[in-house]
Amino acid sequence: MRATELSIAGAWLFEPATFPDHRGSFTAPFQGPAFRAALGFDLTVAQANQSVSARGVIRGVHYADVPPGQAKYLYVASGAVRDVVVDLRVGSPTFGRSETVELDAGSMRAVYLAEGLGHAFQALTDDAVVGYLCSAPYAPAAEHGITPLDPDLDLPWADGPDPVLSDKDRDAPTLAEALRAGALPSWDDCRAWYAGRS
């Protein structure tokens, strides 16, 4: 498995090998030893989630308070998505920057994002199935969002009909509003949390 850190610190792309034969194919989208070799620590999995989305659906931008935050390792089991990582860590050298990776069931590429990073995706196919390995269980009081339609973020959503969002995502604050409200994680708090997990 090849691991590559993206331009935002704490965001990684993992590319596993796929083994096709006359029956179909086999892939291990998450491999603990490869993850540890790349990042220097083990991924603790406290919860596994799966979503199914129709083409055009956008989910996110979601993040959690740090500490404890919620790191995520995501891959697509069926279909394809445009996956977006947003640096929401106030004081980070890449604060407000986003990075986009296309994930699909054919390549089984996966994305890891550290605590404090925001995450969103848009389904590029019908019945796009995304699997999430999460480092912490869902904690409603600690979960937050930024609207994925924030014009200042200008996220690269695919052209097409009006995007389908939940009311919660559509009504979420912009990055500037969340910053003014003091609702974003800090780079210093995130770095302290990262240092304690290895």
Rank of each mutant, 00 (worst) to 15 (best):
T27D: 03
T27C: 15
A28N: 08
A28E: 15
Q31T: 12
P33M: 09
A34P: 02
R36Q: 14
R36E: 15
L39V: 07
G40I: 07
F41E: 02
F41H: 14
A48E: 14
N49L: 13
S51G: 12
R55C: 14
G56P: 13
G56W: 10
I58K: 02
I58T: 01
R59N: 08
R59L: 09
G60D: 11
V61G: 02
H62W: 00
V66E: 01
P67Y: 04
P67Q: 02
P67D: 02
G69S: 08
Q70E: 14
K72R: 10
L74H: 00
Y75V: 01
V76P: 07
S78A: 15
V81P: 12
R82A: 14
D83P: 10
D83K: 04
V90L: 15
G91D: 13
G91P: 13
S92M: 12
P93V: 10
P93K: 06
F95E: 07
G96F: 14
R97W: 06
T100I: 09
D104Q: 08
G106Y: 05
M108Q: 15
V111Q: 06
V111T: 01
Y112W: 13
Y112H: 12
A114H: 12
A114M: 00
E115V: 09
H119Y: 07
H119T: 01
H119Q: 11
A123P: 11
A123F: 09
V129M: 11
V130D: 05
V130L: 14
G131F: 12
G131W: 05
G131S: 13
G131M: 15
P140A: 03
P140N: 02
A141C: 00
A142W: 03
A142E: 15
A142K: 13
E143C: 07
I146T: 09
